[in-house]
Write a protein that binds this DNA or RNA. Structure first.
Lengths: 196, 196
DNA sequence: TTATACTGCTAATGTTAGTTAGTGTATTTT
DNA sequence: AAAATACACTAACTAACATTAGCAGTATAA
């Protein structure tokens, strides 16, 4: 079939990784086969193993890329000296951006992480729990400072995160779609729902 | 192994259906095997086929049960002579109740429908699209009557539906959990985010 | 130009999947 | 009590899966 074409600075492994995210998003991790992935990449299935260790390696690379990216941004936000509503808005915008720009990876990370194998599974779950707790803490701070309504912070985090992860329905239905407009609408609804 | 025990008014098929919803929720449709399902039911895998036609029949029964239930409730709400915010609140409460009470079925319907086979897949997608459009129409009516902020109705529906479907995280983390309190919190955030 | 690491191929392996066939027994109906 | 139906079993089948072994050609560096 000929080699995998590498362009720019991306290695063959990175190409496979990118394509696998698209495939996993499309079909789901379990339903996606290495043969399909190989065909998309333009190579025989066995040849993939010159570049990757296993199918599950692909999944955990995708999930941990996203997770560490999120964690790093949370560090940044926490370090700021701003009020809670501002921080929350910033987080929401970041999450929507991530969903729009790195759609496949974020989507797979969101919906397919349960197929991670140990020890990655436990590790991932712990990172996810931590992220949510940090998010909830910001909301709680806002409640204490009376910027935000008295609500259960954990519920608020849940609503926000799942509302954002739902953006996938968009990608399915509209090909051309305005990320900025979406952001403004979601901010209005979500931040509006929290504000006192 | 002996027969499947039938209790009350539920047929053996209904027992299998219920258990399959739990299994599909737990492992995902593709990762769940008929042999596992059989073991849970207390029977050999082949014996399941005395009651059901195929694995995919189970999935489509689950999905269409939920879909027709939702559609019927939408009929009811649309027929009412109430303002939009009231209708929306009623819908949200209904959806949360459904998520809490028939958790497994609703969850599977939400996350695993893409594994439906034709012609069920197209049919299901169309029902889902219709439900969302009807929901959006109620919101648009509210915007026209100035009960609701000027936002994109489709985005609002998206936010609401996905926020609710996110309740699964709850079931995972808390064993004892108060459906009513959850409802009030979510209503506060979501309806609060729409209200002018 | 020769040596080495890369990267593709074909072929095969072992596992697991959904499902069917055929048989015997328990339950229900007549 | 006899006949019919329901249902569970064992055994097997075919298909698909991830992955490995071994080999051949190709790009890269010496």
């Amino acid at each position: 079939m000929g080699r995998i074409k590498t362009e720019n600075n991306s290695s063959r492994k990175e190409i496979i990784l990118k394509k696998s995210a698209e495939l996993f998003k499309e079909k789901g991790y379990k339903a996606a086969s290495m043969r399909e992935l190989a065909e998309i990449v333009g190579v025989e299935a066995a040849s993939l193993y010159n570049h990757i260790r296993s199918k599950s390696e692909l999944l955990h690379l995708i999930c941990f890329n996203v997770a560490t990216h999120y964690s790093a941004f949370m560090d940044e936000v926490e370090a700021e000296k701003n009020n809670s509503l501002y921080k929350i808005e910033k987080l929401i915008r970041f999450l929507i951006d991530g969903m729009v720009e790195n759609f496949e990876e974020v989507y797979v990370c969101d919906r397919e992480w349960k197929y991670l194998t140990e020890p990655y599974l436990s590790n991932f779950q712990s990172q996810r729990r931590t992220f949510r707790k940090r998010f909830a803490s910001i909301i709680e701070e806002g409640i204490r400072k009376k910027e935000i309504k008295k609500i259960d912070a954990t519920t608020a985090v849940l609503v926000i995160l799942h509302a954002i992860s739902g953006i996938e329905s968009w990608h399915r239905s509209k090909q051309k779609f305005d990320g900025k407009e979406l952001q403004e609408n979601m901010i209005t609804i979500l931040v509006g729902g929290l504000k006192k």
